[in-house]
Design a protein around this nucleic acid. Sequence first.
RNA 1: GGCGUGGUAGCUCAGUUGGUUAGAGCGUCGGAUUCAUAACCCGGAGGUCUCCAGUUCAAUUCUGGAUCACGCUACCA
Length: 685
Amino acid sequence: MSNSQRYTITAALPYTNGPVHIGHLAGVYVPADIYARYLRNTGNDVIYICGSDEHGVPITIKAKKEGVSPQDIVDKYHTIIKKSFQDFGISFDNYSRTTAKIHHETASEFFKKLYNEGKFIEESNEQLYDAEANQFLADRFVVGTCPKCGNEESYGDQCESCGTSHNATDLINPKSAITGNVPTTKITKHWYLPLDKYEKWLREWIVEGHKNDWKTNVLGQVKSWLDDGLKPRAVTRDLDWGIPVPVEGADGKVLYVWFDAPIGYISSTKEWAAREGKDWEPYWKDEKTKLIHFIGKDNIVFHCIIFPAMLKAEGSYILPENVPANEFLNLEGNKISTSKNWAVWLHEYLEDFPDKQDVLRYALTANAPETKDNDFTWKDFQARNNNELVAIFGNFINRVVVLTNKYYDGIIPEPNEFSDVDNETLEKLQKFPSVISSSIERYRFREASQELMNLARLGNKYLADEEPWKVIKENPERVKTVLYVALQIATGLSIVCEPFLPFTSAKLEGILNISKNVAWDDIEKTNELIAPNHKIGKAELLFAKIEDEEVQKQLDKLEATKQANEAENKVVEPQKETIEFDDFTKLDIRVGTILEAVKIPKTKKLLQLKVDVGLDIRTIVSGIAESFKPEDIIGQKVTVLVNLAPRVLKGIESQGMILMTDTPDGKLAFIEPENDSVANGEQVS
RNA sequence: GGCGUGGUAGCUCAGUUGGUUAGAGCGUCGGAUUCAUAACCCGGAGGUCUCCAGUUCAAUUCUGGAUCACGCUACCA
């Protein structure tokens, strides 16, 4: 690689509806940080850009729920997120936010340019509007009578009874699903990015052009989208939280959050450039600049299809060189979930494990979800620290420093003639930077982190083989050479570990009493990384062991979360309004037995059942396929509401409803008579 | 249902453009050693490479099917 290549590195903008957790770190921020630090160390012109993503519906919902303004929500999390990134050593050149003025301006300009150049499709249509909720009622927000079959509970976009799809305005007697009010109609206009026009180009650029250098999971996902066929995508929304659509007649409309968010990379770059007195444009418009997006797999479609199409439509921007998306990290066997509080939150980790940023960085890198979902366990975290960082890396450094201080008062000795082993060891040391570089440049960070550890292993083996503590008794001159060589390895480690373990690198430089005077690439060029007669500092442990109790504390914390979640799930729904006995007697509920059960094709949840309800044997469609296998429920006693109006589901008429309840693990359970001899057709009263 | 990605040692993962004994780290067992945070170093055990079928002289590697996990999408709540 030629020197001083320009790189623009972006990390997915964290969404400000919660703090950052280890899943975000392992998937995006740590690998991107390693990459950025590595490129800086090898003399490139790098900007590492990020910021908070603060628009979108979920923020407004959360704000409503907590009775505060959306701005309060995003301020709160932006502050937490920004600080925790900083404390964790994520080396962003700029961390901005999408509520920033510069971002609103940048996104507006971007939209206007595409608008003026006619890159959007403009579509106006009459939509239902709920004045009380102050909201347009699309799709599922409205129910009414189906114009085709007369079903009174058709949704706005489709009637479930007859299966036809229609517009919400076609419904007879529409009602708002939010307030129950009768909606008015209002004309609303939206702008669409015609993705279908970019389909061919995207296929050529990614599926063919990058089939050898992009990750298979990314290529596969992109291909899957393209094969499905792209459709025009609305880039505006009727909402009051976001960036106002900057054209005439767009009052009350904002840019779709996924339109504005990726532009945040650009506005964050502008913010950085203004502060640093630089020109932002080469970082986004110079063909020679390499643009790399680090993201999680959930963002592939936005970074590989929508954002590139936007950039292409705009015309003056470069396209990403690569989009190394990672898979997901699980926590102790379960999916990480912000809403369920099943996570290790970065800001809490930093409090619980002060000065142990590098331990988490290392544990997440060594077990990163690069090719498939992985599991983070505290036991693995502890093992990575105790067996690798402490026992191999820290221990090697400690041995070298202790010996140097003990024999030479901390002054690096002049070596004598090198033995074959010395030369081989020094040659191996020289090869490490390029091996690690190669892994990093292929986005294989876990492999790179293991190579780093192998360098420390090389040092330990060298000491074990040369036994300076023994040789000192017969041949003190030889020991000078041995420690000289060992110190070269220690110095090499301090340089090569920087992208992965920046805090450790700084600490080690302090111990060795050096400051970055050797560059990454110098290791393979020079024979001497640290010179004789230089005085090093006293021994100081780089890493501390993590005891079982500390890990147990974290496990207890998770267990508490689990129990809190279960308790929350037990929250009983409030009692419904009082009904009269007559109301109850209208319900005809009977005991029945399932005689047949078949999965309905092309559905995930539906089973077609034949149930003997005493009166007759009837067909019932029930959405229980995720909880039961058809063959397991034949003969099952059930309770059936038999006089429910028949309803056609997937073309099959369902003549009744099986009564079900939920189990704590989210499955369904039948309601059945405790006494097995109860006959089919017996009434429930 | 369609599509994508993955299923390799107890655990976490490499790898094989098809070819004699399939690798690493951790864990485990044994040895050596004391400069070092009982750490390091050496060695051993441990795998029908998810299953079935096909192509082939030869498959863990290619093809087809099944199955499980995760995701996208459709449908469904």
